[in-house]
Amino acid sequence: MEMETKVTVHDAMTSNVITADPGISVAEAASIMTEKKVGSIIVKSNSEPEGLITESDIIRKVVSRDLRASEVTVGEVMTRNLISIEPDRELSEAARLMAKNSIRRLPVVRDGALVGILTSSDVMMVAPELTEILVENARIEENRVQLPENERSVPGVCEICGNFEEYLEEYDGKYICEECKEDLEGE
């Protein structure tokens, strides 16, 4: 009997994680995100991750309240109590963890130290067969919690062009990417 190779978190994660100190301002964090083209930064003061700040945290907690991004620290708005995973765990376990907690990013930690980050897009690129786990749960979650129209997006494969996108929107009963949606609306 052939031993099936298990795909691990380590196989799919990104190991050069962009991190920042909790004392920096949200404005600085935003410029790091822009410069590095990332949607989130792991916050840590020593080797251990303390939190995560994402673009949506900045919009929800700073911009929407009209606070000055240069006067708010990352530590004040970051998401704490991070759910993390070890690098040698199976990728399918990571996918279930993301789905269950409705998160798109998992810090990868070995012995308390941050060694990488795993995103839902990483999972789908390495193991497209796990997309089902991520998307099904995102849809279940979404039906349970009525989010405002513009935030009802799930990662997955567009049902029209077949591209994998981080954000799909429901349009006419199909999950499609923004470009296809614009094409349809423009018709």
Rank of each mutant, 00 (worst) to 15 (best):
V154Y: 00
C177F: 04
I83K: 12
I24R: 08
I133F: 05
E159A: 02
S102N: 10
G186W: 14
S102Q: 10
D66E: 13
R144Q: 04
S84G: 14
V63Q: 11
I140M: 08
A12I: 06
E169S: 03
H10I: 09
K61F: 09
E159C: 01
N46R: 12
E76L: 06
V72I: 09
D172W: 00
E76F: 01
Y167S: 02
E86V: 10
E151N: 01
V135I: 10
M78G: 00
P107D: 09
P87C: 05
N81W: 06
A138F: 01
S120T: 10
R89A: 06
E2L: 10
E187T: 09
S120N: 11
C180M: 00
P128T: 07
I133P: 10
D57A: 05
D21K: 11
D111T: 05
Q146R: 11
V72Y: 06
I83F: 13
R104F: 12
D172Y: 00
E166S: 04
E182I: 08
T54G: 03
R139V: 02
Y167D: 06
I18S: 15
Y167V: 05
G23T: 15
E86H: 06
S15Q: 15
P22L: 11
I160H: 01
E169P: 02
S121W: 08
A94E: 12
V154E: 00
R144P: 02
A30N: 03
V123G: 11
G39R: 04
N101T: 11
M13G: 14
P107M: 09
L134G: 15
K37S: 06
E179W: 07
L184R: 01
G173H: 03
L97P: 12
A95Q: 10
L147I: 09
E141H: 03
V123T: 13
L82T: 03
V77Q: 10
Q146D: 14
C158S: 06
M3Y: 09
S40K: 00
P128D: 04
C177Y: 04
D11I: 12
S40M: 00
N101V: 13
I58P: 05
P148G: 01
K37H: 07
V77Y: 07
M78L: 02
E166N: 03
V17I: 15
G162E: 08
I32C: 15
V77E: 08
